[in-house]
Design a binder for these strands. Structure first.
Lengths: 191, 191, 191, 191
DNA sequence: CATGAATGAGAGTTCATTCAT
DNA sequence: AATGAATGAACTCTCATTCAT
């Protein structure tokens, strides 16, 4: 019956935050950010609106933290953050991991595309996104420069657009989009 | 003193509808559909809220008419609606026209991608979009089948995703996206 | 091709006013006064809103004129306005005519009851109604006084309430209300 | 510091609902349903518009609950719901209670008659009303059948019309309507 | 005489956020 | 830590009325 230590309290708090974020992600992904009320989010998480504001100081902050967490997790997944030059195998691995991420984090990507398409909301996360995309871009430019293609930057931009388009189309219709076959085609064309 | 003729009235009506749709497109493209109030749209068009509702039954109907008009204009531009099989030249022409459309109708495409990423709003236009995409898809599958590629449907899906991705990335940063170079790369890879 | 005389013009105007009032009565009776927009009324009459305001200076004035016209017509029907004392036969005739009026002017009575139940609208016509009801009341009190009933005023009030109630119930469900049988019962009880 | 208990919250909620319904009844009875804005209702209740919507889904739902509550209260008052056949004493009691109800729930009846005379609003409550009126009707038909009157259904309809008419006339001018005398007359005539 | 484009005030409703408990 | 009552601003939409033509 000893009082909880500061650490215990902190851990409980973090777990609760985690739960709320996961729950909110589901609501946002399903209905879109702007169309999801805080009431719905709190209800889906099984808590009161008041308590939600105890953990997040606004709706915007809540979604921002969800996005930051998702991007960090993605960076960890594709394992590109350490290198500046990559081999062809690493390139293939990167593309493959990107495809896997879309499939295993469907809800996150639904929210992601929902947000970046809404200018006033995008403003909240634009910086975070650039911090994540820029290193990729540089690695890819580097990769294509070494391969000696005509216009490495355009080639990198094209690949990133390709991945964005796959994301967009896959989340719109995950059941029918032939994602594995499309992956093969892309690797063949862009390798 | 004499009342306006039917033709005069009709002309005023058509002009106003045109004005409102153009004005609304600008506001919607800039701020996103959900974040744009009818007040803002009316103000931007220089008219009262009430008058807007004289011409459009609802905000939803307004945006739907904008989208339908834009899609029809696109179909006319790419000139694919008559054929079922296309030559390589026609393919190149189609991709080229798609790229031109993105550049010349930037606002429309901003709105388009804004809408399809918002589940409750997408419902309004999903049918119209499918009516437009399906024929393209079939023509492309047909094209790749004739070319003898391994998986024509996946190849077609990949191309459409590619175009979607270019649209997405271009509208996010039109000044820096090397759209002409990317066009060349895509034509080379997907032709 | 001679220009129309002032009288012709006046007659045309009156006919038009008549048409509009009849048309408006239909709309008001069907949907209720407050729920009927001027647009609907004008559309149903086959004219423009502007023209309607040429004949009636407001929605309130339009409905007021409809009511006044209906009440005058009722007074003419029951033919009680000249007498102050009536015989039993005249009493029966009066009740009978009241019942006939309800049936033949169903729409008018629908509107009438709709209006008197809405305080802010009732204010428009309250005076007219009292001018019409008061003479009836006096005649009835006189009638019951001569018959030697215990409380002539209450008896008169009860009869008028009875007629009001029949009106109310009949217009609510004209097909099933046994109006002729009810008439017989009332005459027997109140004669 | 401690959060409110579930019971405290429930009590606040019930009290607020009661307050709002009473306050709304006053406003609706005074001005009519359609002419009463939610702003007015909230203001009269001393709360914000937003809070009203915390307790009632819509203006329509609010008025519907007021009507249902009033009808239930009436059913309890006249105590007819258990029997199918009634004695003359019970009949007199029923009429008497109906008269008492009109006097003690004047505002409710003002609203009631206001609503049933407005076609689009009547639709909201028509079912509830029929559920209440039908049993009365059957009991009365039964009563008059046993008494051996010529046309029991018409007799019952006439009585109900009579009561409706009294209601109508009493609420229009409660101070001058001789309700107690009228009650005696009706009981004598319809018993 | 006749039109309907145009307005502006106000309607019902939603919702992020605050705060007493 | 936890609740949901409470607010107020902003939202979409309606409509009686006016007025240029």
């Amino acid at each position: 019956m000893s009082p909880r230590t500061t650490n215990q309290v902190k851990k409980i708090r973090e777990e609760r935050i985690e739960e709320i974020m996961n729950s909110a992600l589901e609501v946002f992904a399903e209905n879109g950010y702007l169309s999801s009320s805080i009431s719905k989010v709190a209800q889906h998480a099984g808590i009161s609106k008041g308590l939600l504001y105890n953990y997040f100081k606004s709706k915007d902050e809540l979604v921002k933290e969800i996005i930051v967490k998702g991007l960090n997790s993605l960076i960890k997944d594709v394992k590109l953050h350490e290198n500046i030059t990559i081999s062809e195998d690493q390139f293939v691995f990167f593309v493959h991991r990107s495809f896997k991420s879309i499939q295993s984090n469907l809800k996150f990507w639904k929210l992601y595309y929902n947000l970046i398409m809404q200018p006033p909301v995008l403003a909240l996360i634009a910086d975070d996104i650039w911090q994540y995309v820029m290193p990729f871009m540089n690695i890819l430019i580097n990769y294509y420069t070494k391969k000696g293609v005509e216009n490495p930057e355009a080639e990198a931009r094209a690949l990133i657009a390709m991945l964005d388009g796959v994301g967009l189309d896959y989340i719109s219709d995950p059941k029918n989009f032939p994602i594995n076959e499309v992956e093969k085609i892309i690797i063949k064309k862009f390798k």
